[in-house]
Amino acid sequence: MVGNQTVSIVVPCHNEEACMPLLLPAIAQTSRDLRERWPGTRLELVLVDDGSTDRTATLIEQEARSQQWSFAIRWLSLSRNFGKESALLAGLDAATGDLVAVMDADLQDPPSMLIRMARMLDDDAGIDCVGTRRVTRKGEPPIRSLFSRLFYRIMNALSPVEVPDGARDFRLMRRRVVDAVTSLPERNRFSKGLFAWVGFRTAWIEYPNVPRAAGRTNWSFMKLAKYALDGLVSCSTAPLRVASYIGLILCMIAFVATCFIAVRAAAFGDPVAGWPSLTCIVTFIGGLQLMCLGIIGQYLARTYLESKNRPNYIVRNGNVPISRGGQIIPRMQCD
């Protein structure tokens, strides 16, 4: 039952100064709706400043100290920009709720949908997580939408777990799901893939694309491309197998070609001809070799980073003491 439980809402923030004045009233309305539907429900908002260069961290701290809201504000400010995945992990580590939601600060994830999510969890004890997926991409550049759909198709073709097209990080989870995700030790994280990998029964809510409430997105096309590459490499070893298959096929082709050339030379002599085609073939083979080495290098680089065993994030300030993996992640100013 949702009633008499604590609901945590984790919100990673990076340069969201324009959205903060809109986010908190929306969360306050959601808090009122939750308590009206399930009396005794407590809500805490976990804000994680991911090394913002604007006034986001200052606004978060001011709102947390003002105590004007009907919900508790727990906050962390990271020592630098570690990326959304690390900020999300920090928020999940800090969340204490029986139910934990993850959403963006730009209100593209409508907080009002949390009521529907909580109702689904309340009505069906067999559901562990309620996720969301966008069914339209209205307002996005066409090229970004095209590559996004292509990414999900490739991901689902190569990965052992399925990530629905348009899946968002926006979801509401029971505590056991959160504990499973935070227990995963890897440093190179792709949350959509991790949520799918840990399993548990997930129900999906579909909704149309919602534009940002204010400000500008921090995700450029190149950042999204890098994020997609990280997701593919972190969730599947299929690219390594593809590189191996390419190498095997090329070896077979080279063997057949060698036999053909040897027979032709023995039967008809060996005139000097065909150097342009030979140059193209050598260049093509060299390019494939470099591509395969690049694929191997991506996995090797991530193995190297994992072997360093560095923390996913370092906290500069906040009002939440965190201990994860038996390691105190460094000292903070705690209220």
Results as ranks from 00 to 15, higher is better:
residue 157 A to K: 07
residue 241 R to F: 06
residue 23 L to D: 06
residue 298 Q to L: 14
residue 54 D to P: 05
residue 296 I to L: 08
residue 312 N to W: 06
residue 263 V to W: 08
residue 5 Q to R: 13
residue 326 G to A: 06
residue 227 Y to T: 15
residue 186 E to L: 10
residue 168 R to T: 13
residue 6 T to D: 04
residue 233 V to G: 04
residue 111 P to H: 07
residue 51 G to C: 09
residue 215 G to D: 04
residue 24 L to K: 03
residue 154 I to N: 00
residue 113 M to S: 11
residue 143 I to A: 14
residue 86 S to P: 15
residue 36 E to Q: 12
residue 170 F to P: 02
residue 7 V to A: 05
residue 188 N to Y: 13
residue 61 E to T: 15
residue 30 T to V: 08
residue 276 P to G: 05
residue 221 F to V: 15
residue 189 R to Q: 03
residue 316 R to S: 07
residue 219 W to S: 06
residue 111 P to M: 10
residue 228 A to L: 08
residue 325 G to Q: 14
residue 110 P to C: 06
residue 175 R to N: 01
residue 253 I to W: 01
residue 46 V to K: 00
residue 177 V to R: 00
residue 269 G to D: 06
residue 2 V to L: 04
residue 325 G to H: 15
residue 181 V to A: 03
residue 102 V to D: 00
residue 210 V to A: 10
residue 102 V to P: 00
residue 187 R to K: 12
residue 23 L to P: 07
residue 269 G to F: 07
residue 96 T to Y: 02
residue 172 L to E: 05
residue 157 A to N: 01
residue 78 L to V: 01
residue 226 K to Q: 11
residue 174 R to S: 03
residue 334 C to T: 12
residue 68 Q to K: 09
residue 97 G to N: 01
residue 324 R to L: 14
residue 155 M to G: 06
residue 78 L to C: 00
residue 186 E to Y: 07
residue 252 M to S: 14
residue 24 L to W: 14
residue 216 R to D: 14
residue 308 K to I: 01
residue 157 A to E: 05
residue 238 A to P: 02
residue 123 D to G: 07
